[in-house]
Design a protein around this nucleic acid. Structure first.
Lengths: 224, 224
DNA sequence: AGAGCTATTACACGTTCATGACATCGTGCG
DNA sequence: CGCACGATGTCATGAACGTGTAATAGCTCT
């Protein structure tokens, strides 16, 4: 259902929630500290971060601020303390919701869903094509939840093709709109870029699912 | 009336709806799982997908997303659950309508018609000639709802002829505009290409319905 | 029946694309 | 400043596929 990054230092709570969330069909990654959590986030395209406040090293508020600074990921805070000060502080640091421990997994999951429901309707420029996700705001691409680093040209090519799935572009059109080349002339440049892109986003580059060849015409994103 | 792909794992519901829709003059294909549905869609050019949410394997939401990623096909979701979350989630996943089970076939059909009516006005450069459908954006051709793979020259020929149905082109004109040959000279090249094209798109190639011979002049697409 | 067209099929050549190696360019870092 | 690295463009190779040609059969109209 959703990709959850759980940052929690207490192994018992961490493992318990991980299991419970996985049991409800979420994809879960766990981290034991703020540093580790931020590292994970660099390659795990989480939909939501569940963030304990009491952490060794940099604390939850700081982690929250750093995530907010760099990503649009939703954040659900988790804390043993439920007084107003913490709640307000947490929400002001940029959290989307605040849950007081101990928490029943069902409740946490409902909160996660609610948060996602709320944010999904707002932040739109994220397109999901099967296992491939293209975020046009942060310019990140992930495949099966793993962020894929794409060099500039490959990214531009993907953005351009995926903007109108199904439509076929010939090499000339791509050279003009993606490369902004104006010279006409035969070039295998587009081919090479397509190959490199496929190597990164396709499961079986020889049988591409996303970037398909239309022999004699060009390339197309999407349908068979 | 319309081509419907029904993805539903419950055999009773599946067969019931299939029969009912066929009885109302729709062409129906049924699939018992999300995977099967997506497979079918690769070769069955459905106008609308009726999609159960509770499926074995990949669930309805995911199927919906994948279809949306690759095709412009309309989607009507079908679910036993009608709470807000499901409805909102379904519509956000890209469904065009959401129907709660149990549903009377008449109602489902009315929904299908409404969805098609809505999307038909939007949809793009897709031309339908009888059982033949030509999509000029994705460069795909389907016949009786089956996608037909056409080699470049045959596709170009078909695109050119079908662009102005009824108009007769002689071989010289076709050589120039489709083949971009500038040399004049007698050639049976066009004939050969026409034959190959007919073999793929005509029901009875000997009595062509789409690509017609005009003896002494050339060829013409479509009606007499 | 015969001339003039068109259909049909087979095959070899040519084109197109995938793939990987290589050259070049630019950038950041020591 | 020079080095290292990643990104980008170019090229050579090989395989797959499509296409043009030609030869033959079939049809249609006079």
């Amino acid at each position: 259902m959703a990709r959850v990054l759980l940052i929690e230092d207490d192994p018992a709570v961490r493992d318990g929630l991980t299991l419970a969330l996985k049991g409800r069909d979420h994809e879960v990654e766990a981290a034991a500290s703020g540093e580790e959590g931020l590292d994970r986030l660099a390659e795990f395209a989480a939909d939501v971060v569940v963030l304990d406040l009491m952490l060794p090293g940099i604390d939850g508020f700081e982690v929250c601020r750093r995530i907010r600074a760099s990503a649009a990921t939703s954040i659900v805070m988790l804390s043993a303390r439920g007084d107003d000060f913490d709640v307000v502080g947490g929400l002001e640091a940029g959290a989307d919701d605040y849950v007081v421990k101990p928490v029943r997994p069902q409740v946490l999951e409902a909160r996660i869903r609610a948060v996602l429901r709320r944010t999904e309707s707002v932040q739109s420029p994220v397109e999901t094509y099967g296992a491939l996700r293209v975020d046009r705001a942060s310019l990140t691409v992930s495949r099966d939840g793993r962020k894929v680093a794409l060099p500039p040209m490959e990214l531009r090519l993907l953005l351009h093709l995926s903007a109108t799935p199904g439509r076929v572009f010939n090499r000339q059109q791509l050279l003009e709109s993606v490369w902004e080349h104006d010279y006409l002339g035969d070039s295998r440049l587009v081919d090479a870029c397509v190959q490199r892109l496929r190597a990164k986003i396709e499961d079986v580059p020889a049988e591409p699912r996303y970037v398909q060849t239309v022999r004699g015409f060009g390339y197309r994103f999407g349908p068979v």
